[in-house]
Computed example of a mutant assay.
Amino acid sequence: MKKQIAILGSTGSIGTQALKVIAEHPDLYEAYALTANNKVDLLIEQARQFRPEAVVIANPDKYLQLKEALSDLPIKVYAGADALAQIVESGPIDIVLTAMVGYAGLRPTMNAIKAGKVIALANKETMVVAGELVNALAAQYRVPILPVDSEHSAIFQCLELNNPVHKIILTASGGPFRTFSLEQLQTVTKEQALKHPNWSMGAKITIDSASMMNKGFEVIEAKWLFGVRPEQIEVVVHPQSVVHSMVEYVDGAVKAQLGVPDMRLPIQYAFSYPKREPLSGERLDFMKCNTLTFEAPDTRRFRNLALAYEALHRGGNMPCIVNAANEVVVASFLKDQISFLGMSDVIEKTMERVTFIQTPTYEDYVETDALTRRVAAEMVINRTY
């Protein structure tokens, strides 16, 4: 019987590659629901190709265009944040792939957990913002959370049942500015930041990778996904992106997952777990990758990584504050309203100015997110950072 997949964010980088996995295995998987934020033309194209039961466009202004374009097909069409959060509850859905970007992924992920759906997690912000709350829900409803990020999927694949872990080693490419000095970083442009050396991703995550905030978020996510302490999570810069991450056990043995940079592999593994299915594409050629290097990250040049570790150590709503501030400054950087290094300044100041809550509820997270966005946006506009 085919697994019914709901893809939240089907028009993004992860979503489009997930649809390639479904297209390669039409006997195993079927797209039950597809959602997008604004890319209505691509959502229409996807809906006509994959014929899902339902589509959702988060931006209600695009609803009529979507509805009219699919009027000749028996596809249910919805719009708005509420519809996006509710579609995941549909009975036939087996797996919800959370591939949408940012804080917006939290509510639908929580709804999917409450509905008993398997979560294929590509939206790291869900665990960054509210990892403790999400883990408690997953335990309550006995729902597995399967990581889709290449690094967390690699760790997941390396873990051995009941064998104690000494530490988790997250690899980072270092991004396009790995060798830049602080002086050079002061004048980098969004065009430079959007040119990732190894991966093809959306704009927001590409900027996060360039600033190493993406790796900081992965550190926080790893803590909640794998139940380790912050001091057990190490980041190493590995420019070749061949080793996707590693696990070191208490006896000193290290297991690593290697492969070409292809997000279809972790996506498909989340869909097929615990089985492995064939996958077309390039294979790792060890005769060609004869140089693998590793180095320590420089948190003086890339302060976001240090800020993420600080947020993790402080806990409570602090990771939520960091995430919201980061979403604001990345959007501002993409509009040429703030410098590359200025992003870290705003995040750090916001961490100082927004009220800290040690044991937040879901409502606290919602209020923290909204307040943080206002504080960070005012700093960017008034240049008070």
Rank of each mutant, 00 (worst) to 15 (best):
R107W: 06
E363A: 15
A172P: 14
K67Q: 08
D345P: 01
G131M: 01
T187S: 15
Q65L: 02
P147V: 11
S344R: 12
R303K: 15
R229Q: 14
P278I: 08
V236H: 00
I155C: 03
D41H: 15
K117G: 09
S200D: 08
N163G: 05
A120Q: 10
A33L: 01
P164G: 09
T299D: 08
G102T: 01
I168H: 04
L182K: 13
L42Y: 10
M201V: 06
H244A: 13
M246F: 14
M379Y: 08
S245G: 10
V250A: 14
V128S: 11
I347M: 06
K124L: 01
S245H: 05
V366S: 05
A325D: 01
K335E: 15
I233C: 02
I93Q: 00
I357H: 06
N326E: 05
P266Y: 05
K335C: 00
T109C: 10
L371Y: 05
N290Y: 14
F340A: 11
D262S: 08
V346C: 11
R229H: 07
A136F: 02
D94I: 02
A130F: 06
F180G: 08
R383L: 11
A18L: 06
A203Y: 02
P239V: 04
V96E: 07
D41P: 01
C158A: 15
F217P: 02
V128P: 09
E295G: 15
Y309F: 12
M127N: 04
F177N: 14
L42M: 04
E125V: 02
T126K: 12
P176F: 13
L292I: 07
V328T: 06
A122C: 08
A23Y: 07
G15Q: 03
I205G: 03
E45F: 04
Q186W: 03
P26N: 15
L284D: 09
N123S: 06
A308Y: 07
D41K: 03
E125T: 04
D345Q: 13
G252R: 12
N304M: 10
M351W: 03
A138W: 10
M127Q: 04
W199D: 10
L258Q: 12
K20G: 07
Q232T: 02
